[in-house]
Simulated scan of single mutants.
Amino acid sequence: MTSHALIGRSRVVVAGLAMDALTEDEVVRHVVAAVRRGEGGHVVTPNVDICRACARDPEVRAIVAGADLAVPDGMPLVWASRLLGTPVPARITGADLIWSLSEAAAANGLSIYLLGGPPGIPCKAAEALRARFPGLRVAGGAAPPYGFEKSAEGLAAVRQALVHADPDVVFVGLGFPKQDRLIGVLRAELPGAWFVGCGGAISFAAGVVRRAPRWMQRAGLEWLFRLCAEPGRLARRYLVDDLPFALGLLAMCLVKRLLRRWRSSRRGVH
């Protein structure tokens, strides 16, 4: 039985992807309950860039479709769901889940593992999380070298360290879809663990990369904050690729909403 069947919650389709209409607290409670039952899983947090990749690549789309939980990381997706009349409760990011799931892990005696980020960053993130949540069990962490997944030796080293640590929750911050492909490989080794593809969350938790202020996050402007911080790396991705996709998605959802209202009014006339 899949975790979808166990939750008994609704899913909504946004940008062609099925997403779970859950709050962050509901995601955390589900993960903790599943771990206690010995049932593992995979959390993916699609944003506009991931939705765009899924629209182009069936293999990438299958990765998202195969995750046990998919929650929107990106206000355009939240806005699109509202326009479609099937709203999701909120934006849920890996950068938020690393804190809320770690808090729940500390409260329930569960262990976490941090995989990803530059050398030394998982250790710094672990220190920050333990300082915030006394008693948190950090089973381990690793910052594998670039390209490790392309060699049998590199992949085996990551797998062996993770299996030896035997954590309950694994945060994998290697960027989509690399992190989620790796999760697909590692899940077989730890069937009772939950894996969270969290992008840059480990670096955020370590304090080496700043997040946007809360008001910018709520207003859907976190991308602008990151663009200003790293224009050379992010300008093409955000301005050339993601922004037109987001605007097109919202325009399409608006048209669907207006058509739905028009048809409803026409039925009322007759």
Rank of each mutant, 00 (worst) to 15 (best):
S3I: 10
A5H: 00
R9S: 13
V12L: 04
V13N: 11
V13L: 10
G16S: 10
G16H: 09
A18C: 10
L22G: 05
T23F: 02
E24H: 04
D25A: 15
R29L: 00
A33Y: 06
R37H: 08
E39R: 13
E39T: 14
G41V: 07
G41Q: 07
V44Q: 04
N47R: 06
P58G: 04
V64R: 00
G66A: 07
A70K: 01
T86V: 08
P89F: 08
P89A: 10
A90N: 15
T93S: 15
D96H: 05
D96V: 01
D96W: 03
I98W: 07
I98H: 04
A104M: 07
N108C: 12
G109D: 14
L110V: 02
S111M: 10
I112C: 12
Y113V: 13
L114Y: 04
G116Q: 06
E127T: 11
L129C: 12
L129I: 09
L129A: 09
R130K: 15
A131T: 15
F133S: 15
G135T: 10
R137F: 12
A139S: 08
A139T: 07
G141Y: 09
A142Y: 06
A143K: 05
F148Y: 15
E149P: 14
K150W: 06
S151K: 05
A152W: 04
A157I: 01
V158N: 03
R159C: 00
R159K: 13
R159H: 04
F176L: 05
D180F: 03
D180W: 04
L186Q: 04
E189F: 06
P191V: 00
W194K: 07
C198H: 11
G199P: 14
G200D: 10
A201E: 01
G207M: 01
R211I: 03
A212F: 03
M216S: 09
A219P: 09
G220A: 08
R226N: 04
E230Q: 13
P231N: 11
P231Q: 13
L234I: 09
D242I: 11
M252R: 14
K256F: 03
S264W: 12
H270Q: 11
